[in-house]
Nucleic acid binder design. Structure first.
Lengths: 336, 336
DNA sequence: AAGCGACGTTGAATCGATTCAAAGTTGGCC
DNA sequence: GGCCAACTTTGAATCGATTCAACGTCGCTT
């Protein structure tokens, strides 16, 4: 069984528990002699520190929660890896919760992580969570939003400028000679979606004779994208758009899949396609996908760093960190 | 601040701490009257149970560690989601560690999770971890291997029959008229890789005039796959294979990307392509990819269930659960 | 030789939930 | 009324690491 405690180590090394604790946490105050004996005892007994006891006493834990709205989206996987890299540098472990775009599950994970007394919460939110997060903060658990700009600046956030991204996407399409542009995305509760659409509208208004049509989806998935693509295909040819701007790459890949399978509307000849996120698979798609790249790994790292700073000093004023997306042009938007 | 303890609740409700604890953990022994008062006090004070204290006392935690060798592989993301679904049904949180195919990081996460006194460890291992896992078990922390068959049956494992999968892949290629087959994958420390290759060899030996050539990769990534694809393309035309069996879909997509970009060897006309895992993006690839499907979400669920059983009863004999992969045929292997 | 500061070490108190033996309460029955 | 069983409630002990005031021990100065 486990059961090797600091007391056993102390006894073996012939010192007090206080000294052992000092060796572990403030080695500079203990004499080299004791330090050595303690270290030996630790090795011999295979002592492993009990995080629970430490956490209980200190009131701070070595874990951070990460609640992600879609764990199957490679974009978030990249963000998680970035956060994980940063976390391990601080000896911190990440509790991971994939809510699969389900608000109930989202609440559940927040509750669970609160019980676990996480030091802070990273969250790519789906539902309306601000009040809940506010309560968490009152209990001393800060939260940092990932991928979503925090409306009233109540929380720190790390995101990409979705409005600018939307504008860049549609300006690029217009420059390529497209005029009838469909925005495919949803649900509209997601700020990412509304912002990208808003940016698209700005670009359209700055041009002449460009219309934006909205084709809503229920989720940001390949399947929903494919469904949207098929809806486009059922229309008479003259009512179809000549370009699609998808709210993210998963949707774009779904649309692409539907179009390629059907075969009647070739990409990019009849219809151009832009995604968002620039996930690794965008480049390997049936038709390599033009997309707006987010610095995903950096987003994760930065989010974790800011979270730890806020956990250390609750008085810090929330900061909004906004990166600029980068247009990566591939074949799916070859000009007419 | 936090600081609402079970003692505060007890005081507010006018009962003892023992009763509050009973309301929380064995509601059937407490009178409806007290239960109500306690519940009210909990709501009014916003009490949240302190996992650290509970864990310390009980010696068991409500967390499970999941160490994944490649968090960017959608296959593992699906597995993680399955495990997460199952975990939440048991009120358990998952500590997540992405080792990015780095043995040092793998050890680091195992150490970290041990300090956290996880109830058990799910691991898709990369390096040589059996001795370390053995030590963990001696401390009462069981481990279940995910995606890798446990050699000497020392640990429970959930996997897919990689040998059968390799055989099915190559038999399918042979049936489609292919004769010069390249196996692309690595590193060979991974049993998945060697098993899939072994299965491929079996299929080749059962046929006439079929050769298997091995093109090693340093990792199971798109980038490594693309590099391998480019290596194939540098050869004189007559020395190129007429089919590629990739150790997983990421490699397959990389190879495909290289081939499509170059344009000289058309898929599937000149060269056929089979992957493994059947990730969601396989169907959406430049050329829809034939692959061997693993029941990824089921693998995750099952792994977690078995892990919890073993945590509850350390005497259980390790079980090897092996699913059969399913060949999903798409255009990348259209017969000649 | 007394006094002082620097340096190490000690060990009891603490964090908060759970446990369980013991005490308390209730109602039923003779 | 007395007694017993069934049901509730109590609260001190416990888990293991950390903390910190108090205590030794030296070596050096005056």
């Amino acid at each position: 069984m486990a059961g090797v405690s600091i007391r056993d180590v102390a006894q073996r090394a012939g010192v007090s528990v206080g000294t052992v604790s000092n060796v572990l946490n403030r080695p500079e105050v203990v004499s080299p002699d004791s330090a050595l004996r303690v270290q030996q005892a630790i090795d011999e007994l295979g002592y492993v520190r009990n995080e629970a006891a430490r956490k209980l006493r200190q009131g701070v834990s070595g874990t951070v929660g990460f609640v992600v709205m879609d764990g199957q989206n490679p974009f978030y996987n990249d963000v998680v890896r970035g956060a994980g890299d940063e976390a391990t540098q601080h000896g911190i472990a990440i509790l991971f919760g994939d809510t699969a775009e389900d608000p109930a599950r989202e609440r559940m994970y927040i509750d669970l992580f609160e019980e676990h007394q996480v030091r802070g919460l990273l969250i790519a939110p789906f539902g309306e969570v601000f009040n809940r997060l506010e309560k968490l903060r009152q209990r001393g658990i800060p939260a940092v939003l990932v991928g979503r700009y925090s409306g009233q600046n109540r929380f720190s956030s790390i995101s990409v400028d979705s409005i600018a991204g939307g504008r860049m996407a549609v300006e690029h399409l217009i420059a390529g000679g497209r005029r009838r542009i469909a925005f495919v995305g949803g649900p509209f509760e997601l700020h990412e979606v509304t912002d990208r659409l808003a940016g698209a509208r700005v670009a359209a208004e700055n041009a002449v004779g460009v219309e934006i049509e909205v084709i809503p989806t229920a989720a940001m998935t390949v399947a929903e994208g494919a469904a949207a693509g098929n809806r486009i295909l059922t229309r008479p040819a003259r009512e179809r758009p000549d370009a699609v701007f998808a709210a993210n790459d998963l949707i774009a890949l779904g649309v692409l899949q539907a179009l390629v399978e059907d075969g009647r509307m070739r990409v990019p000849e009849e219809i151009a396609l832009v995604g968002f996120d620039d996930i690794a698979f965008a480049a390997a798609a049936a038709v390599p996908l033009t997309s707006l790249r987010q610095p995903s790994s950096t987003i994760g790292k930065t989010a974790l760093r800011i979270l730890l700073e806020e956990a250390a000093d609750p008085e810090l004023i929330p900061r909004q960190t906004v990166f600029q997306p980068e247009l990566v042009v591939r074949r799916s938007t070859l000009p007419r």
